[in-house]
Simulated scan of single mutants.
Amino acid sequence: MASSLLVGERLVRALSPGGELEPEQLPGKLREEFEAVLGKKHKGGDRPAGPARLVSFRLIRDLHQYLRERGSTLYLHELLEGSEIYLPEVVKPPRNPELVARLEKIKIHLANEEYKRITRNVTCQDSRHGGTLSDLGKQVRSVKALVITIFNFIVTVAAAFVCTYLGSQYIFTEMTSQVLAALIVASVVGLAELYIMVRVMEGAETGGHPCSTHLDADL
């Protein structure tokens, strides 16, 4: 906080011998304090440099109060022409090494968290890539199961046709009747196999049991 004033040449000349404040007959104590701060002798244009020109606000207030009590025609703002408020440089205390080390650890931790957040999409892409391979494996297994089902269907229908044809020889004497009976039985078996196949495939797609799917359809 500012508590001093860097006085200008106007106040220095006024306090010098023969200056504007000499006729005001400043009290000895007040003049001594000003001279102790600004220097006892001001010859020519010489002036003390640096902190020697710093005057506290208290001295300025005492001077202003004295001039008002005497009814002087000198105004303080005129005497302070060219003066500036002195703001001392703020000296920063040294930082605690332990605190600095802790802050560095926190920065590293936050940087790692940010890196993980940024690279999270890359991990997801890898997961999706693995998921694509898994889906491909499932599709291959599904195709394999479909081929086996079709093969079983053909074998079942063919077996039904052959069995019916051979068994119908004991009933029918004509070959035409035997073939017709075998075709009818094979068609019935084929339709039944197709129905069961469709129900199984629907149950696999919906993730439910074929029986439950059948009941839901009936309801």
Score class of each variant (00 low, 15 high):
111 A>K: 12
173 T>P: 09
190 G>D: 04
122 V>W: 11
33 E>V: 00
193 E>K: 07
37 V>W: 02
37 V>G: 07
135 D>L: 10
189 V>L: 10
133 L>A: 13
210 P>G: 04
213 T>M: 11
153 F>P: 02
91 V>W: 03
12 V>A: 03
187 S>Q: 09
142 S>G: 08
159 A>E: 06
96 N>P: 01
8 G>I: 00
76 L>I: 10
157 V>N: 00
63 L>A: 03
174 E>T: 15
111 A>E: 10
67 L>G: 02
180 L>V: 14
124 C>F: 15
190 G>T: 00
219 L>Q: 07
147 V>M: 12
1 M>C: 06
69 E>K: 14
97 P>F: 05
219 L>K: 03
113 E>D: 08
158 A>I: 03
6 L>R: 05
34 F>I: 01
21 L>V: 05
109 H>E: 14
6 L>C: 03
17 P>R: 10
174 E>C: 09
109 H>S: 14
54 L>P: 02
18 G>W: 08
106 I>N: 10
129 H>S: 14
199 R>A: 11
143 V>N: 05
167 G>N: 12
213 T>C: 11
59 L>V: 03
136 L>I: 09
63 L>T: 08
119 T>C: 05
7 V>S: 05
81 E>S: 07
109 H>L: 14
165 Y>N: 05
158 A>E: 05
22 E>I: 07
209 H>W: 10
51 P>T: 07
7 V>L: 02
71 G>I: 06
49 A>T: 12
143 V>C: 09
46 D>E: 14
18 G>Y: 00
47 R>N: 04
190 G>R: 01
10 R>W: 06
171 I>F: 11
56 S>H: 06
87 L>I: 15
50 G>Y: 06
94 P>S: 09
36 A>D: 13
25 Q>G: 05
165 Y>K: 07
177 S>N: 13
158 A>Y: 06
74 L>F: 10
29 K>S: 14
123 T>S: 13
93 P>S: 04
155 V>S: 12
209 H>E: 15
83 S>Y: 00
49 A>V: 12
60 I>A: 00
166 L>C: 09
16 S>P: 02
169 Q>W: 09
30 L>T: 05
8 G>E: 04
88 P>I: 00
173 T>L: 12
154 I>A: 12
179 V>L: 06
75 Y>S: 08
70 R>P: 01
181 A>E: 00
203 G>D: 05
47 R>F: 12
16 S>Q: 08
138 K>G: 10
217 A>R: 10
213 T>L: 12
126 D>R: 15
76 L>A: 01
180 L>Y: 11
210 P>W: 06
21 L>D: 02
197 M>L: 13
78 E>T: 12
69 E>N: 07
157 V>C: 10
213 T>V: 11
58 R>P: 01
46 D>L: 15
82 G>I: 08
22 E>L: 03
71 G>C: 05
100 V>N: 03
176 T>P: 03
66 Y>F: 15
8 G>T: 01
76 L>H: 06
218 D>F: 15
122 V>N: 08
147 V>R: 07
127 S>A: 11
179 V>E: 02
214 H>W: 14
183 L>I: 13
76 L>E: 00
97 P>N: 11
165 Y>P: 08
107 K>F: 02
192 A>G: 08
143 V>G: 01
151 F>N: 15
